[in-house]
């Protein structure tokens, strides 16, 4: 594996020393922040920490409190709704758009630029803009009403039952372009021969896409899936800017619960327990993927 062995060096440790020194920031980040900090939080989630972290271990009490807290239960429910909608819609729409753009479309660059620009924006910007567009008195609802359909009602941001729909609309606006670009890059990597072969066999294009190309793009799909899912679990700023968890607590999400407990309610133990649950959720998604990516096959 090692391409560059310094020959005749006395000790293994000093072999390739410069590279090891150069990698210190990476090693520190990996071991101290990613491993160390995470373990610290997990350990302290079993303590009674309030305003400051304390080492009074109280077993699973924080988790019992967490899972009987209405705000947390709603957060989890919202995350599931949000996550399912995001995955389904961003991938279906993203894939359809990628296929459309792959048809030797004129002005492809213009379309791509337009579909991706929201991805460059902050979630705060996205949240604020959609808060305004979905404003019942001036936004979408009032415009439809002005056309004569007086009873039209679409006011997700003030209706706890459908508030997550409003958040999903904003998140899709921002994120679908990203999925599309990844899939389009994958489509462009598909060999021309495949297209020639299926055309000679008289297979319709949509069938080729669905049954030949999609299986070929599996790695791209999986990568996109992992990135989008990890983003879903982290969703925070969008909700803060668009609804701030409201109306009431009906659009709370786990990341916001953690922040509120840690920095507003001075209830660190709850924050640690909730963030540990987020870690577990991500681990369930990531570990199988990481195993396939790093462990399952040999490199080089």
């Amino acid at each position: 594996m090692a391409k560059a062995n310094g020959s005749g060096r006395p000790s293994r440790l000093f072999r390739n020393l410069n590279a090891k020194i150069a990698a210190i920031p990476m090693i520190l980040t990996a071991m101290v922040v990613f491993v160390g900090f995470s373990l610290w939080t997990v350990v302290y989630s079993f303590t009674k920490s309030g305003l400051l972290p304390r080492r009074d271990f109280i077993g699973l009490t924080q988790y019992e409190r967490l899972w009987s807290n209405a705000k947390w239960l709603i957060s989890i429910q919202n995350l599931v709704i949000f996550g399912a909608c995001m995955l389904i819609f961003s991938f279906v729409i993203g894939f359809v758009l990628a296929c459309l753009l792959d048809q030797k479309v004129r002005f492809e660059g213009v379309f791509r630029t337009v579909l991706l620009y929201p991805f460059a924006l902050s979630f705060v910007v996205t949240g604020v803009v959609w808060q305004w567009i979905l404003n019942p008195d001036f936004g979408f609802q009032s415009i439809v009403r002005a056309t004569g359909w007086e009873s039209f009602t679409f006011d997700p941001l003030n209706n706890g039952k459908i508030v997550m729909l409003g958040v999903v609309i904003a998140a899709l606006w921002q994120g679908t372009g990203f999925v599309m670009v990844l899939l389009l890059a994958g489509l462009r990597g598909v060999d021309d021969e495949i297209w020639k072969a299926t055309r000679i066999d008289g297979v319709p294009a949509w069938k080729t896409y669905l049954f030949v190309v999609v299986p070929m793009l599996r790695p791209v799909f999986i990568t996109a899936l992992v990135i989008v899912t990890a983003g879903i679990v982290k969703v925070y700023d969008l909700v803060v800017a668009q609804t701030n968890g409201g109306p009431g607590i009906s659009s709370e999400v786990p990341a916001k619960y953690v922040y509120d407990q840690m920095f507003l309610n001075q209830n660190l133990g709850q924050g640690f327990a909730a963030s540990t649950m987020m870690l577990v959720t991500v681990a369930i998604i990531i570990i199988p993927w990481a195993y396939l990516e790093f462990g399952g096959r040999k490199r080089g």
Binding site: T29, V33, S38, L279, F294
Partner: peptide
Amino acid sequence: ILMIGAFIPYQVMIYP
């Protein structure tokens, strides 16, 4: 570890 760490929610590491 660095790659896997990229997926750890920031909330887990924020207080340490």
